[in-house]
Design a protein around this nucleic acid. Structure first.
Lengths: 197, 197
DNA sequence: ATCTATATGTTGACAACGTCAATATTATTG
DNA sequence: CAATAATATTGACGTTGTCAACATATAGAT
């Protein structure tokens, strides 16, 4: 009498796309984008190496989805600062600190989000839309601090400052998270001081 | 009667290391760091694929040499601004504009210089030395504008600003070179405005 | 001058990678 | 129910960085 075979795994993974993205996200933060191979993440998701191509056009499309998710999270942080019941100046400081925190907490994702060589965000409307929304929240915060004709300049200064500092911290070890609050305050002063009083 | 064979190429290239670096530099700016393969640049330099290993420990070591060269050039730009016979405020503006120009003119090299994933500068003393010298020139410019206890903060603001703006321009197409001078001036105001008057 | 060691150079080979192609299984559509 | 589409697998290919073995030229020691 032949014993019945053990229960087989179903043919379909059932949640392949999300499993792939989860695997990608994990590998990204441990090995960086350079160490993120499609074959590796397929294996981690319990799929074959060709399976990612059923859900993403190519490797860049998969990375673009990570980028979109990253901008959505960053945008939510910026929105939280914009919607907080703090005085306008404190909102800008809170937004700056959040931006820097995001980069310091998920450096590989932050790198990927601004790595035109790996993902050209302009080719992925959802990702670029999320990026624009993120920046718009920052502009909203700045708009509460100045007149309409200087909002653009001040927003540019704000973004350049936090982005430059965050990038230098993760790429050169410029400073660690213990300086974040002080630097956010310093940058707020610089932003306010960039316009004529 | 056997005719004599045509003149052979000498066994040794004669300038292999520099030929490899030149080839790497060319490919870097056309295909980016992601498109820069050791085999390709060896071929371009007229050498076999193993030849680069006679001059560089591995691919990263070769890239580190490019990074060092990049920081030397950037440092020279910063020094030129520091040594110019302009008033101190104009020197800062000139330095900022030079930094942004460097990034916009050689974006792939600029990316590589701050790409910890590709080249960890901390592991290459000559490259990190050149990077530090570059930043020190910026600090020298700032020192002429403020008191000793605020030099560090102002230098950090200056660097974060130009670095953030330069990076955003090359990675997101934020703005083109036509805005460079105006933005350098705006950033100077922000730097000066970051300290209490 | 001769011999040995070192530096520079080549090609064979390997594992890993992204992706194409063919095949198999399951789910959806008409 | 049959046909189509979506999801899944494995074979295969060209490319990559690097190891290893071998070849050639140069430098150093005697």
């Amino acid at each position: 009498m032949k014993s019945s075979p053990p229960p087989q795994q179903p043919y379909h993974h059932g949640d392949a796309r999300n499993a792939l993205l989860r695997a990608a996200s994990e590998i990204l933060e441990t090995s960086g984008a350079a160490g993120l191979a499609l074959r590796q993440l397929a294996e981690r998701a319990g799929l074959s190496r060709q399976a990612p191509y059923n859900h993403f056009a190519d490797k860049q499309a998969l990375l673009a989805e990570l980028v979109k998710q990253g901008f959505e999270r960053l945008g939510a942080d910026m929105k939280a600062a914009a919607d907080s019941d703090l005085p306008p100046v404190a909102r800008l400081t809170k937004a700056g600190a959040s931006y820097i925190a995001f980069a310091q907490q998920t450096p590989a994702l932050f790198r990927l989000m601004f790595s035109k060589e790996l993902v050209d965000v302009a080719c992925y409307p959802k990702a670029s839309g999320a990026a624009e929304h993120s920046f718009a929240q920052l502009c909203k915060i700045v708009a509460a601090l100045t007149s309409p004709e200087t909002v653009a300049d001040m927003s540019l200064v704000a973004w350049s400052l936090v982005h430059g500092y965050a990038t230098l911290c993760i790429e050169t070890g410029l400073e660690g998270p213990e300086h974040r609050a002080d630097r956010a305050a310093l940058f707020t002063r610089a932003v306010l001081g960039s316009v004529q009083p």
